[in-house]
Design a protein around this nucleic acid. Structure first.
Length: 576
DNA sequence: GCCGTTTTCGGCCCGACTGTTTTCAGTCG
């Protein structure tokens, strides 16, 4: 029996087919395979279920041929067509195309002329000066290849959004001070608030003829380690931290369409361009023009552009071509939670637990942010958990919170706890203690590699504990470090929704958990969400933005989130 | 290989930058 294939594994096979076809020089098929792969990758339902209903061909981008191949993959766990392509193209060629500056064409040439089939072989050939003699390559390309191979050895492939937001803001604000710069904004995946990003994109509008000055200022910023390229509209640099930053400069008139264009995603933009083509227009970063006459149509900004295409404004966080354009067209796009709609933070750690600051300080910082309440949720004592609280310490914390609440006006501190879910679904505090607390978060902190069935039973059992209010970081992933736990999330969503338990959206930069795709799926079950920064210091309260961004990317609206409610309504929900 | 308020055949997103070239292909986003 073949191993069960999940959507991501099926998509990976189709992506590889697309790459290999492209290396072979086949036209258009790669686009088709890539589109199908993307549809599958972003599908919220298990592909095997769609296949079981015989509805594969109804998915956009999937026709009879690709559907047949998907059925083979689901049945056998492999695809004969791919195996054949691998043999034809040769091993390692796809890997070569992953080097910056080498694409499918050059990878194939390197393989055919020099027999290069790995990055190591490429490096050796470049060192020996064998590459410069091939037509289409030169000394410069050889040097660039070596530089790129050296650079990628010490560089992370992707970066955490939470780490990069301050970096982007620093560059943005430095360039905003230039007299030539009229408008400036982050763009790309950082503006879409994607959990991890590959590079930082920044877009600026400058006075006519002053782009060069802006570029010169950009490439000579103190954080810049090396300049990859610089022209009048586009420059790329690498910072000392290894992250690449791209700056584009356009005129003020072009800023709106350019901001839309450079925010992406690529797939969202391609879909929009198709839409423009249907209307007889051609869409680019510089505006909209009539295909036939070449006349430019005036566009005042992003909102205007979407309006021209017959759509309401689509928030940047939604622009992933995951059905947002179709939903916008039908008017079924939810109004996603505004960042300022969050009225309190439901997951904070204090210095009695493994946090840094006392309750009083956290409360002051929360009040300064305009919150009406916070929930202090230190860890309950448990093996492997640093500085967990036992019942005695919980009682002491209760006195501290009562004192702070007496002093404070306009902010309520709730006394909560973050319990660990044991292997059998039990919690590590007795019911008597839990019953006295305002809010109980239950989270899995150990044995994350359990089998899916066991893990699902474990989490579901914990949800049936009468005292649990919130399921903490439900997927159990650590971004760039650990894959999500094997867990039947839809089953968990259904149970949580039925029991009135909220799913946490945790704003820790390495968690952002429940992930956006999970949020979207959970909404189908009528689930409720609780946003928490998981701050371990008052400065980290700003991590709430990462939680809110995840909710937005998951199409979650304010009324589906418990901590957009007033203090009284939140209390009512906690006492449900 | 997919798809259709111009199409069941003939299209398939668009422009900048680089390095190699004497006018452009390849790559990238």
């Amino acid at each position: 029996m073949a191993a069960k294939m999940d959507n991501r594994e099926v998509a990976a096979i189709l992506y590889e087919v697309a790459d290999l076809l492209e290396i072979k020089g086949v036209g258009f098929k790669p686009v088709a395979y890539r589109r199908a792969a993307h549809v599958i990758e972003t599908l919220t339902e298990d592909l095997a279920k769609v296949c079981g209903r015989d509805e594969l061909e109804e998915l956009p981008g999937i026709g009879t041929h690709i559907a047949t191949k998907i059925r083979e993959i689901l049945k056998k766990g492999s695809l004969a067509y791919l195996d054949r392509l691998r043999q034809e193209v040769g091993p390692g060629v796809r890997e070569l195309a992953g080097i910056a500056g080498i694409g499918p064409k050059k990878a194939m040439v390197l393989h055919q002329k020099l027999g290069i089939d790995s990055i190591d072989a490429l490096e050796a050939a470049a060192r020996e000066g064998k590459i410069r003699i091939i037509a289409g390559f030169g000394e410069k390309s050889e040097k660039n290849i070596l530089a790129e191979i050296a650079a990628r050895k010490g560089r992370a492939a992707r970066f955490l959004l939470g780490d990069m937001l301050p970096v982007a803001e620093k560059i943005r604000s430095a360039l905003a001070l230039l007299p030539e710069v009229r408008q400036i904004s982050p763009a790309g995946s950082i503006r879409r608030m994607k959990e991890t990003i590959g590079d930082i994109d920044i877009l600026a509008a400058a006075h006519e003829g002053s782009a060069e000055a802006v570029m010169a200022a950009f490439t000579s910023l103190p954080e810049v380690d090396r300049v990859l390229g610089s022209g009048p509209t586009k420059s790329s640099v690498v910072l000392a931290s290894g992250v690449q930053v791209d700056l584009r400069v356009v005129s003020e008139e072009q800023y709106g369409t350019a901001l839309q264009y450079f925010t992406g995603s690529k797939d969202h933009n391609i879909a929009l361009r198709r839409r423009a083509l249907d209307r007889g227009w051609s869409l680019s970063e510089y505006g909209v023009k009539e295909t036939k006459t070449g006349t430019n149509l005036p566009v005042t900004g992003e909102e205007d552009l979407y309006r021209m295409l017959g759509l309401p404004f689509i928030e940047p966080e939604l622009r992933e071509n995951r059905g947002e354009i179709e939903a916008a067209e039908k008017g079924t796009l939810p109004s996603v939670v505004p960042y300022d709609a969050v009225r309190g933070d439901l997951h904070l750690h204090t210095n009695r637990g493994d946090g840094e600051d006392p309750v009083r300080e956290l409360a002051a910082a929360a009040k300064a942010r305009g919150y009406g309440y916070i929930a202090v949720c230190d860890h309950a004592e448990s093996p492997g958990i640093p500085r967990g609280l036992n019942p005695e310490k919980i009682a002491q914390q209760q006195k501290e919170i009562e004192a702070v609440n007496r002093e404070l006006d306009g902010l309520v501190v709730l006394h909560g706890i973050e319990c660990s879910i044991g292997p059998d679904g039990s919690l590590n505090l007795p019911a008597k203690v839990l019953g006295d607390l305002d809010l109980v978060i239950a989270s899995v902190h150990s044995l994350l590699r359990m089998e899916a069935k066991e893990m699902t039973e474990r989490v579901t059992a914990a949800l049936h504990n009468d005292h649990v209010d919130v399921l903490g970081h439900p997927a159990g992933r650590l971004l760039l470090k650990r894959e999500p736990a094997a867990l039947d999330l839809p089953a968990v969503f259904e149970a949580a929704a039925g029991l009135g338990i909220a799913l946490e959206i945790n704003g820790s930069p390495s968690r952002m958990d429940l992930p956006d795709s999970g949020c979207r799926k959970a909404r189908e079950y009528g689930a409720r969400f609780a946003l928490g920064s998981d701050a371990h210091a008052s400065a980290a309260l700003r991590q709430m933005a990462l939680a809110a961004a995840t909710a937005r990317r998951g199409w979650v609206s304010a009324d589906e989130i418990v901590n957009t409610r007033s203090p009284a309504d939140l209390r009512a929900w906690l006492g449900r």
